[in-house]
């Protein structure tokens, strides 16, 4: 009897994942966005272990700016490295950075935003003025400033972008928490003697996570493009940590001699950004539990 029940519960959970995928599949564009994001994440994980050519140390000056050929399907870059390998490695760099940025920004943003929204009053006021300061500057310029202060390593760029991004999330979460905390079910939870923090973390936050997830997928392209932008502008770690923005930066002066470099790294950037946007569109419809089943 007991076992049967637990089996039933886990089955219903896998079922809900399957039904989510099914809902995603209903829209072909959304589903292709989803597939590309998953594929890119896989590439990002696999690349460091399985890559056709080494990109981190070897330089072949005799082979630079080569056009497409059988041994180098996309040609080579300014250091004579295989362009396909470099772009794949760039995927890995960019997606790792993306995950780290989202992780940092999400933790700070949710913690600060939820507490501010739930407690309200002076604490809320103080926090919101801090976010105002962050939001007052154009995001790229602020990120550049942080990057310049912190230094050229890729982790520093990541931190710089996260620092620019967290106020967005904390504002969003704060607004959601304020909307949610005045709903009647919160009152019934209080009437059943639940503690304030348990209500916030167990009941209010799960109700706010949906818009946050959607915001994340919409903001992911911004993170990738900002990272590429910082690299393009020379804030990056240099050629041995390949990245799409840095490739474009190196290649654009030679656009007419060797167009492959700019075209393909630009395309990678475009596809990654676009697929995140498509996925975000679909998630908005799918994540609503009221649409399930």
């Amino acid at each position: 009897m007991t076992n049967q029940r637990t089996v039933l519960r886990t089955r219903s959970r896998t079922k809900s994942i399957i039904s989510t995928l099914r809902l995603l599949r209903e829209n072909k564009l959304v589903f292709s966005g989803f597939l590309i994001v998953v594929a890119a994440l896989l590439v990002a994980v696999i690349t460091p272990f399985a890559i056709p050519y080494s990109v981190n140390s070897t330089v072949h000056f005799t082979d630079k700016w080569l056009p497409s050929s059988l041994s180098h399907p996309l040609g080579t870059d300014d250091l004579g490295r295989d362009l396909l390998s470099v772009i794949l490695w760039g995927t890995s760099t960019d997606f790792t950075a993306l995950v780290v940025v989202l992780g940092i920004a999400l933790s700070i943003g949710i913690l600060v935003g939820a507490t501010a929204g739930y407690l309200g009053g002076k604490f809320d006021e103080a926090i919101m003025r801090v976010t105002d300061v962050f939001l007052a500057f154009p995001s790229l310029i602020l990120a550049m400033t942080f990057a310049a202060i912190l230094g050229h390593a890729i982790i520093n760029l990541t931190i710089a972008i996260a620092l620019v991004y967290w106020p967005d999330i904390s504002r969003l979460v704060r607004g959601q928490v304020i909307a949610e905390k005045s709903k009647p079910y919160i009152e019934s939870l209080r009437a059943s003697g639940m503690s304030r923090y348990r209500i916030l973390y167990k009941h209010i936050l799960p109700n706010t996570i949906q818009p946050v997830m959607i915001q994340l997928t919409f903001k992911a392209p911004w993170v990738i493009i900002t990272l590429a932008g910082l690299n393009f502008l020379g804030f990056g770690p240099g050629p041995f940590t390949p990245d799409w923005g840095q490739l474009i930066s190196n290649g654009y002066a030679y656009f007419f001699e060797a167009p492959n470099v700019v075209i393909f790294s630009g395309l990678a950037l475009l596809i990654a950004s676009l697929s995140f946007n498509l996925l975000g569109d679909g998630l908005r419809d799918v994540l609503d539990p009221r649409l399930r089943r």
Partner: peptide, 24 residues
Amino acid sequence: MRKIRGSGIAMVFQDPLTFLNPVF
């Protein structure tokens, strides 16, 4: 007071839909 709510005195409200958490 929180310990008394729920285990000592409990309350049922008017509209049961809005008084239940929709995501659980």
